[in-house]
């Protein structure tokens, strides 16, 4: 295993981040249905420079997905789809692993890490993220 993270540490971190994420999404969903207001801005880059970062708009994207408009969601930020899948699947997976005393998610995490260390994959991923960033700036999120 390449990662220094232990299984339990990774799972706790995942559960903690996912619950934070769900609270944040619930807050945005409940208060901003229809007209999203950008009163609270969590992105350091955007606050410091005024330019959105590659993952700005993820909250809006997830809120759009959850309210059923897939097109809006993809337009806000395609990364929202990945984040939504992660925060939906990982808590279930963690609970499954805890119940059956397995470490399948931990092994999967290691495999994903190794996958992104392949040079070609890394280069493509970086290009995609930068392209998304340019798109974000163009959209003026």
């Amino acid at each position: 295993m390449s990662s220094a993270l232990s299984r339990n540490k990774l799972y706790l971190l995942l559960l903690f981040t996912c619950s934070l994420g769900w609270i944040w999404i619930y807050y945005n969903f409940a208060y901003n249905i229809g007209n999203y207001s950008t009163d609270i801005n969590t992105c350091i880059i955007k606050q410091a420079t005024g330019v959105p970062c590659p993952s700005c708009g993820t909250t809006r994207s997830i809120v759009s997905f959850l309210s059923g408009s897939i097109k809006d969601g993809l337009y806000s930020n395609p990364l929202g789809l990945i984040v939504l899948i992660i925060i939906m699947v990982s808590p279930v997976w963690v609970v499954f692993d805890f119940l059956f005393k397995k470490k399948s998610l931990y092994i999967f995490y290691g495999k994903v890490e190794m996958f992104f260390r392949i040079k070609l994959v890394a280069i493509i991923a970086i290009i995609l993220v930068i392209a998304n960033w340019i798109w974000n700036i163009q959209k003026g999120l």
């Binding site: 990662s3 220094a4 981040t17 969590t42 993820t58 984040v83």
Partner: peptide
Amino acid sequence: IGDTGLGIGKLLTCGGFG
């Protein structure tokens, strides 16, 4: 430093909400 998984996590969450 080679923590690719955590890096992706940080990237996707805008540095973990900053």
